[in-house]
Design a protein around this nucleic acid. Structure first.
Lengths: 110, 110
DNA sequence: TCTTTTGCTCTCTTTTGTAGAACAAATATC
DNA sequence: GATATTTGTTCTACAAAAGAGAGCAAAAGA
């Protein structure tokens, strides 16, 4: 890929990380993905994608101590970087621009 | 891939096909891609993607006689199918929904 | 006919997308 | 306290998409 272009799944995961804010971690991201998009994914797929996003500098991560709930292990929490936000904005601009030229698509209205 | 999910580049190319309307063919699509997104692509990449889109039923194609301009060969012209339009709409809905939950992104306004 | 231009096809490599098994640590149960 | 259960991440593989470019074909111009 050209380097700075976000893959389709990468983009969705990055958006979910942004939506979750302070509590974005592997399993939670997978759950939110399913809730928001109806799309399921294996946990390995989510983590692989998060690692790639981190390599690209679009997210940062750190370990956070677990809660007291049963099995509550420590989590690796992710947060979006400025670079990540820029990548999302760029991607959004391209789409909004193209959509605006395809009136047929505007069923649900932007 | 999950089957019905549009890849990132596939989605852009499909949008360009829609924008170009009756005159969407390989080289023209590449030019329009560059014009609209500033992104360059090898012609082979564009055709490989168009072929994949056709396999998925998102575009149809047919040969069209060339023009009288120098070297104007016959072109393989593509057009979006109803299925393609639906795929774009679905993808758009998911993004618009997620974007709406990330106010920070709304710099250029939808 | 030879060159130039437009255009598509074929082949190959790298990146993304996807899944799931394996492993680790914490609480619960007896 | 040994074992089960639950929450999490890491590791390993493989399929699909992204991307490049050489090569081939046909039309017009000289």
């Amino acid at each position: 890929m050209k380097g700075d272009v976000l893959g389709e799944f990468e983009e969705i995961i990055l958006l979910i990380v942004g939506v979750l804010g302070q509590d974005a971690y592997g399993l939670g991201i997978r759950d939110e993905l399913e809730k928001q998009t109806g799309r399921s994914a294996a946990i390995g797929a989510v983590h692989a994608t998060l690692n790639r996003l981190q390599e690209k500098g679009y997210v940062e991560s750190g370990m956070k101590e677990g809660t007291q709930e049963r099995g509550g292990r420590r989590k690796r929490v992710f947060q979006m970087t400025g670079l990540g936000k820029k990548a999302l904005t760029d991607s959004k601009d391209v789409r909004v621009n193209l959509w605006s030229q395809l009136p047929d698509l505007n069923v649900g209205k932007v």
